[in-house]
């Protein structure tokens, strides 16, 4: 077991532990903080996969924007401190557990029959070329999705404006 495996296991354990704490902590801001830890762990996994650009985008977008948005949203709500002492489980939690177990079995089954794990990937150029390859394919092969993403985000913005702005006027 090399240093890479150890680092990967540590990062994966951190992601899992933090994710469990996200859903179990009663204080909403603490949940958001644990979410940041989980997202950071995912960034570390990206680095270990030699995908530095995605790691940094993970930090910029997910931690720098989305997590801050979450904290903001939490600040705008009442009942942050988790004053409710009741159970956090719904009475029919076992149905959800069963469904997610089924889903996991399905995913594992599909992935185990997938050939992609066994096939050898083509050798990668050096890192710098990797980013420019990405940029090139964004405006050639994936041109339509690239421009559509922009339009989609416009739609998202307009939707957000409609939902939260018009009514408050």
């Amino acid at each position: 077991m090399g240093a890479m495996q150890i680092l990967f296991l540590l990062a994966a354990a951190a992601v899992l532990g933090a994710a469990i704490l996200v859903v179990t902590s009663r204080n909403l801001v603490h949940a958001a903080l644990w979410l940041i830890v989980a997202l950071f762990g995912v960034a570390v996994v990206y680095v270990l996969l030699n995908a530095g650009f995605f790691a940094i985008v993970q930090v910029v977008i997910y931690i720098g924007a989305i997590a801050i948005l979450f904290i903001f949203a939490v600040m705008l709500t009442r009942q942050i401190g988790g004053k409710d002492g009741g159970s956090q489980n719904h009475s029919t939690w076992w149905v959800a557990a069963l469904l997610s177990l089924l889903l996991m079995v399905g995913i594992v089954w599909i992935l185990s029959t997938w050939q992609g794990f066994a096939t050898e990937l083509p050798a990668l150029a050096n890192e710098k070329e990797l980013i420019s390859e990405l940029g090139k394919s964004l405006v050639s092969t994936y041109l339509l999705p690239f421009e559509l993403a922009s339009v989609l985000l416009v739609a998202a913005l307009i939707g957000a404006i409609y939902v939260s702005w018009e009514k408050s006027r």
Binding site: I131, G135, V139
Partner: peptide, 14 residues
């Protein structure tokens, strides 16, 4: 922010 980040690979491959 999400949209601008898309542009960085584009700028590197200029």
């Amino acid at each position: 922010d999400v949209e601008i980040v898309f542009l960085f690979p584009w700028a590197v491959a200029f």
